[in-house]
Structure formats: C-alpha cells, structure tokens
Simulated scan of single mutants.
Amino acid sequence: MSLPSADRPSSAPLAAPRKGWRAVIASAAAITAVAIAVGFVGFLSQLRGTEAKPARSADGIVVLTGGAFRVSDAMELLADGYGRRLLISGVHPASGANDISRSLTDNQSLLSCCVDLDRSAVNTRSNAAETRRWARERGFKSLIVVTSNYHMPRAIVELSHAMPDITLIPYAVVGDKWREEPWWTNSGTLRLVLSEYLKYVAAEVRVRLADVGLDITREANEAPPVAPRQPATAQAN
C-alpha cells in the first residue's frame, strides 16, 4: 500500500542546507585562492632582480649561508667598510676556518680579525636566534643582512621578530640563474620560489601567532643542514 503523496517524506529540507554548505565551501575556496594569489604577488614584489650596495653602513653584517656567492658578497661589504664585524651564520660543523679561508683568499686579514662563525644555526629561525645573541653581545644596533633574494623576505621576518630593537638593512644576493632568464621559465627556479613562498607564509603565520601569545616552537618546512660542496654554505634555507 503506497502512501498518499502528501504523507511521503520530503527531501527538500535536506537539499537546501546541502546546497548552502556547498556555496559556503565554494566561497571559502575562492577567497583562499585570491588571498594566496595576492600574497604571492606581494612576495614577488619583495624580490630584487639586481644587486645594489646598501645605502648606509651598519654596526655589523650577518650572512645566512645556503646559497652561492652569499659569503663572498658579505666579505666584500666588510672589506668596503659597511660594517665593523661579520657573522657567518649556519656554517656546517664539518667546515673549519681553514676551509673558509681557502675559499676567500683575497680577504685573509679580515677573516682573522673581523669574522665570527656560527655553527649552531640549522635553519632561518635559529639563524635569527644566533644573530640576536651575537649582536647583543657586541652592542650592535644595526645590521646589514646578506642572503639570496628569494630568501630575504623570510629572513627579515625571522630576524625582525627576534630583534625588534635592531635596524635591519637588506642586501639581496642575485644568483646567475635569476639574472640569465625569467624565474618562471626555469622549472628548478620556479619550484624554489614557490617553496620559499610557502615557507615565508608559514613564518609570517607563526610570528603573528607568537605576537598574540601563541608561540609555535617548531618551524614548518625547514630541513637540517647537509654536508656542503663549498665551505660555509651548508644551511638549507
């Protein structure tokens, strides 16, 4: 015996909420996609395409290892009088002062008098912690920060969070691949930029949470150092 149509249960009340949730999810996805795109454009706007000497000198210079030419460029800044001392942060434990000396033969006197090595840092966050300790021990109030252009935004986030009372002056190192062709045409460079953007976002989120009292002690997307091919470039930034 079939029920009259008026007595049959209706699926309409269930269908309406289901459609409503789908609309909410679609809207959230669209907003997230727009936010990611806008954030990525903002990140790219911070990446220098050419190198430019700092507009002013500073008390000290810190170079974060992990990319080609970072240490040699930092040594040139030290030699030109842009800072009184240089910290090379993130030196692999297997790299000794003699290894670095052999790779920087033009600046032997500076290496012996004015360069400090940090072997404790294993990622950008610990770079910032070791740099803070070094700067405070010497009473430095301003630092020139040397790292690759794609790494600079995240480095400044971490360093400024660790040392809000110290003036940071970026010096971005631009690699050969970046100079020779647009970054988006090289698959390796494209992956590097996208990966660095995700790390930058993670650092921004962690720092903002820490500012409101929610400190996340473990940094996302960081890898431990690996044995270097060249001295003093061991950190995986």
Rank of each mutant, 00 (worst) to 15 (best):
A37W: 09
L77M: 10
P17K: 02
R154L: 00
Y197P: 03
P228M: 07
Q46T: 15
Q108P: 03
L143F: 13
V91G: 04
A94E: 14
V24M: 08
D59A: 05
D99Q: 02
L86F: 01
A29R: 07
L214M: 11
A28V: 13
I61D: 13
V207D: 02
S195E: 10
V205Y: 05
N221I: 12
A223Y: 05
N127E: 13
G66P: 01
V201P: 09
V226M: 10
E137A: 08
M163K: 07
M163L: 07
R229K: 13
V91R: 04
D106G: 08
G20I: 12
F140Q: 06
L214E: 08
A16I: 15
D80H: 09
A28Y: 05
A210M: 04
N221A: 14
G49V: 12
Q230I: 01
K141M: 01
G66T: 01
V34H: 08
A234W: 11
R191M: 06
L110G: 07
E180F: 05
P54G: 02
A234Q: 11
G213E: 02
V174K: 03
N123F: 06
A15T: 04
R8H: 01
P225K: 00
L3K: 09
A94Q: 12
L78W: 11
A129W: 13
A223Q: 10
V173G: 04
L87N: 13
Q235A: 10
D211R: 15
E219N: 02
R132Q: 08
A79W: 12
I31L: 15
S11W: 14
A26G: 04
A94Y: 06
G90E: 10
A172M: 10
P231A: 05
S160Y: 01
D106Y: 11
G39I: 07
Q235N: 03
A28I: 10
V205K: 02
R179K: 10
M75Q: 06
Q46K: 14
L143C: 12
S101I: 06
G39M: 05
V193I: 06
R119F: 03
R218P: 00
G139T: 13
S101W: 08
P225T: 08
R218S: 09
L44D: 09
I169Y: 00
N107R: 15
P225I: 00
Y82V: 03
S120K: 14
Y197F: 14
Y82W: 04
A68C: 01
G83Y: 08
S109N: 09
A6K: 10
F69Y: 09
A58H: 03
S109V: 11
L214I: 13
R132H: 12
R218D: 13
E219H: 00
Y150V: 12
G83W: 06
V34L: 12
L190P: 00
P153H: 11
N237Q: 14
S120T: 14
P13K: 05
G60N: 05
V24H: 00
G213I: 09
N98M: 11
